[in-house]
């Protein structure tokens, strides 16, 4: 059976403690939360950290979903299952429930965390697309304090984020606007599989027109956060099937997938369009109270 290479284990008891440990142990230290991304990579010896800092004791400090005023704040240690089951979250951001239903499997969702998913930054990882679509920002804390970055700035590319050595992601913040809706669609080969492709959409209505709309894509190429032409195409437009098709085509035009065992590049490009259309349709329906 596959086993990780040797490492030293530390357990952090607070965010400050975790940051102090990272500072002391240096860049050979890695944080582990749910572990479902990192530990398999360690077993394959694709990751061989010298130190592992277990932050599961931070679940009480960083495990929360707070809907406050015009913002939702979600702690980085919030487990997938909590994101799935939170009615408060589903009421304002149904996209989370859409996505969480199809992220990994129920047992993995018991352990995996929001922060772990975002920091892994796998190009096929769903929550990055979700957070992008809803215009989330990320709170990163280090010894010198906190900084807040947009998803666009957070996500630097495959497996690369704005979190620097000695820092950790502590919270995700999402603005809540009235007359908004969001939705997520994913195609997977089988339950629990990574996405062949997926798309998340969020819209805010102003009367009969879309005041603001965003789409986040997953598994169809790097750097597909904040696709500006999509937002431009949606802004000020009345929702219609023609509009969705136009925007879907923009998504497809921006997609740069590669052919692999999950699917051909042509198919994934098609899905970028198809799933963008479906997500937009549902997001608008939700925003306009039709669902």
């Amino acid at each position: 059976m596959q086993v990780p290479a040797p490492f030293e284990y530390e357990r952090a008891t607070s965010v400050d403690h975790a940051i102090a440990l990272m500072e002391r142990l240096g860049d050979e230290a890695r944080l582990v939360a749910g572990g479902h991304s990192l530990i398999p990579m360690m077993k394959l010896r694709l990751a061989t950290p010298e130190y592992l800092i277990d932050i599961n004791d931070l679940a009480s400090e960083l495990g929360y979903i707070r809907v406050e005023g015009d913002e939702v704040r979600i702690g980085a240690m919030t487990r997938h299952r909590e994101l799935l089951e939170s009615n408060d979250l589903a009421a304002v951001l149904p996209i989370f429930r859409d996505a969480e239903k199809v992220i990994a499997d129920p047992v993995v969702r018991n352990r995996g965390t929001l922060g772990g998913s975002l920091c892994q930054a796998d190009p096929s990882e769903d929550l990055s697309a979700v957070c992008d679509a809803i215009g989330a920002s990320c709170v990163i804390r280090g010894r010198s304090g906190e900084r807040v970055v947009s998803m666009h700035d957070f996500h630097r590319g495959p497996y690369e984020t704005a979190v620097a050595d000695g820092e950790m992601l502590t919270e995700v913040r999402v603005p809540i606007r009235p007359h908004s809706g969001s939705a997520y669609h994913k195609v997977e080969r089988r339950a629990g599989d990574w996405a062949v492709a997926s798309a998340g959409a969020a819209v805010t209505m102003d009367g009969d027109v879309i005041a603001d709309g965003r789409v986040g894509l997953c598994a169809v190429g790097p750097n597909l956060t904040n696709i500006e032409p999509i937002s431009a195409a949606l802004s000020g437009q009345a929702p219609s099937e023609d509009l969705y098709a136009t925007v879907g085509q923009i998504a497809a035009d921006n997609a740069t997938p590669s052919t692999d065992t999950r699917g051909t590049a042509a198919y994934k490009t098609h899905l970028a369009k198809e799933l963008t259309i479906r997500s937009l349709r549902k997001a608008v329906a939700r925003a306009t109270g039709q669902e």
């Binding site: 195609v187 080969r189 062949v196 052919t259 692999d260 065992t261 999950r262 699917g263 051909t264 042509a266 198919y267 994934k268 098609h270």
Partner: peptide, 18 residues
């Protein structure tokens, strides 16, 4: 018959590359 291979078949390609 994964989704990709079914879609490729719908495009007239019943033995896709992968």
């Amino acid at each position: 018959l994964t989704p990709s291979r079914v879609w490729e078949a719908m495009q007239g390609n019943h033995t896709p590359p992968i």
